[in-house]
Design a protein around this nucleic acid. Sequence first.
DNA 1: AATAATTCGAACCGATCGGTTCGATTCCCC
DNA 2: GGGGAATCGAACCGATCGGTTCGAATTATT
Lengths: 238, 238
Amino acid sequence: MAEPLPNADKDQCDLLDGLRRGRPAAGQDPVKRSQIIEGARRVFIDKGFEAASMNDITREAGVSKGTIYVYFANKEELFEALIEEERGTIFKNMYEVLEQTGDLRATLVRFGTALSAKITSAKVILAQRTVIGASERIPELGARFYERGPKRGHDKVMAFLNLAVERGLLEIADVDLAAYQLTELSLAGLFRQCIFAYRTEAPSKAEIEHVVRSGVDVFLKAYGTKKLAAEEEASNAA
Amino acid sequence: MAEPLPNADKDQCDLLDGLRRGRPAAGQDPVKRSQIIEGARRVFIDKGFEAASMNDITREAGVSKGTIYVYFANKEELFEALIEEERGTIFKNMYEVLEQTGDLRATLVRFGTALSAKITSAKVILAQRTVIGASERIPELGARFYERGPKRGHDKVMAFLNLAVERGLLEIADVDLAAYQLTELSLAGLFRQCIFAYRTEAPSKAEIEHVVRSGVDVFLKAYGTKKLAAEEEASNAA
DNA sequence: AATAATTCGAACCGATCGGTTCGATTCCCC
DNA sequence: GGGGAATCGAACCGATCGGTTCGAATTATT
């Protein structure tokens, strides 16, 4: 069983090391590792953790079963590596919108739209469903997924809202809760329908935008100050 | 494999029939059926659909495996019967609050609190997680669960909001979406944390009430009319 | 007590499971 | 080309799976 590879941020560096140093040691080839994970991904997402067999994964990845066990100690470790990669991909770049300055309403709409589109996209819904389903077998898996994904995002939303409060544009008694409210308003009628497979297709861009605009309107109606209203009016007049 | 039993509303009637008619035919004994389902429930909820074995269920239910197969054609049918019973239990009585008249804000708080407490309770989270996890194997299961549960509840919330609109207490452009918004505001920061097992315990009553009150405040700040404000003010003065 | 029917529980079936082993093949460096 | 190491792929292991079978035990009625 291989030592864990350095994290994904250094993939390029490892590839260069590989080129410089010679053939990777057993279990240390990032290309082979990715090949395994990608094949595993397709099977786990299709069948869930329990029903996905290592024989299926062997075929799908196009490697030998023995090789898989050189890279990963067992099925669970392979699954956890996969989920860790998924998490990184899903939440990458999602909160950068909030680092922009400018019109508050437009920024919130941009953020809500990006969040909602991502969270309800078919691929991400499948991944989330797989994580949720596996939580019975691997209890800390879902928690870690949430901790390093949505929770960190929540902290960034909070920081953003705090800035808006300081600028006098919002007045919020409980910023922590307000950040959750903003997120859930952006997902109203969408996430739960998707995760229960009540919807078989991702929501359209138009629907997401409609949901998000309405959610942001509700949010700003509740928390927006007179100063915000004045700024928006001045901006509309210009 | 037994004919499906009449639905749960007639359990008492069937028991009386059983007393009058003599011994139930093979596979027709509601007591035995419930015994199987209850044992199955504990195993499915503990392990999920795939990892729960019929041997486990046989032991847990305290019946013979052959008997289980007299009552249910296969593992899937047993699981679907269980989920159907769960759904009935979970959503029973949840929306009756909305049939009451009286103070709008208080009614919404009562509804949101009941909804949130139920949806995030440990038992129901486990059931929902099991349903979501099994959706990969039985695709229409989650959809049916949502259709007959949350979706029907949504329709009742919508009807309630429509009445409030007619009474001039709310002004809502998209009542369908507003109903989803109200529900998700009541679950903000709660449902997703629970379903991903980020929280290992159900939220406290105090937390739920705080979330719901804030959510209802946001909702009414956005959609409440001057007439509502006047009524609440008159009610406060009295 | 006799009888008929339901249920029990042990054994069974073919299939698959996760994980291991090992000679053969391939790959890469010198 | 040779050598060493990574990977392959087939076979294997003990265990378990969902579902079936059937004589024995139990239950309920007459």
